[in-house]
Each structure stands twice: as C-alpha cells, then as structure tokens.
Design a protein around this nucleic acid. Structure first.
Lengths: 68, 68
DNA sequence: GTAAATTATGCATTATACTGCACATTCGTT
DNA sequence: AACGAATGTGCAGTATAATGCATAATTTAC
C-alpha cells in the first residue's frame, strides 16, 4: 500500500537528516499529531500535507509509470 | 506547486490511454466530480484518492530526492 | 535506576476532502 | 446551426483529515 511505504520513507529521510518529529512538525507547519500518523502509515494525508513534509526533507512527490 | 503538476500528469496519462473522465471515475471508484477537481489542479486530494486514480492509469506515487 | 526527552495513543473539535444533484460550458459530428 | 457527448461549476450534505489536549509508552542520558 502506497501510504505505508511513503510513511516509512518520510521517517527514514527524517532520521538521515537527524531531525526529530517535533522538528519536522515545526519546520513544515504540520502538527506533530499528523506527522506521527503519516510516519506510522496510519491515516490518509492530503497531497498538501505530504508536500509540506516532503519539502522540509528535500523530497518531492512524483507520479511515475508503474514498474511491476 | 505539486498538485497542479500531478493533475496535469493524470490528465495526460488518461488521454494517452484514450479514457474519458467518466471512465476513469468508474474504473477508480472516485467520483467524476473529484476526477475533474484533481485534473484541474484545483483541490487537495488525499493520497488514497490519488492512489486510486494512479492505479487505473498504471502510475505510482513516489517520493524522490528533490532535483533542483 | 531514574529523570528527561522523544515517540505514540484516546478522545473531542474543527477544517476540509468527497460526493450528488442540477445546470452551464465546450467540443465534435452531422 | 443543432444536437449529443464530454468537460466543467455552484451549492449543500456527509465523511474524514487535521488539530489540540491530556496521558501513556518508549527511548536516551545521567
């Protein structure tokens, strides 16, 4: 499922950058509560919310041809 | 902005596959109303909704390192 | 061990995505 | 032009994402 994978990517990238969830929350303007939900793969964030998180982490959302 | 770009990609891909908005709506289970909004770059779809559309179109949502 | 920091969960409220219906506009065909 | 098909808009209702607060559990540092 897309959301779980994305949540994991967010979490891993955050760790690589040595940021805490609270940092990501504050830098992105997304509540800590929602950061937690997204990273746990629980929930169904909007593109807007995901985009705010991705921006802080230097990531971008892409649509690509399915490989598989 | 991420949403406008994604909307355009959805629309272009749909055209490549010779699908109409109504087809995409029915195949994905997303209302025609929402398909219209997403394609026009207006609105802020959830990952779940975007994922349903992407699946039908053979696309996948990805997070990748920002290139720019 | 224990204290503090970090991550996680329950519940209630607010903001907003998603939808259906009706109607309007644009596009293609004759 | 005139008709039908496809795409788009306004408005209202419903579902659910996003949030804050309090509280837990977990991890980290002392």
């Amino acid at each position: 499922m897309a959301i779980k994978k994305i949540g994991l990517q967010i979490k891993e990238r955050r760790n690589v950058l040595h940021l805490q969830q609270k940092d990501l929350s504050e830098l992105s303007g997304v509540s800590l509560r929602t950061v937690l939900q997204v990273e746990s793969g629980y929930g169904n964030p909007s593109i807007g919310t995901l985009s705010k998180l991705a921006d802080v982490l230097g990531l971008e959302i892409q649509l690509s041809i399915q490989t598989k």
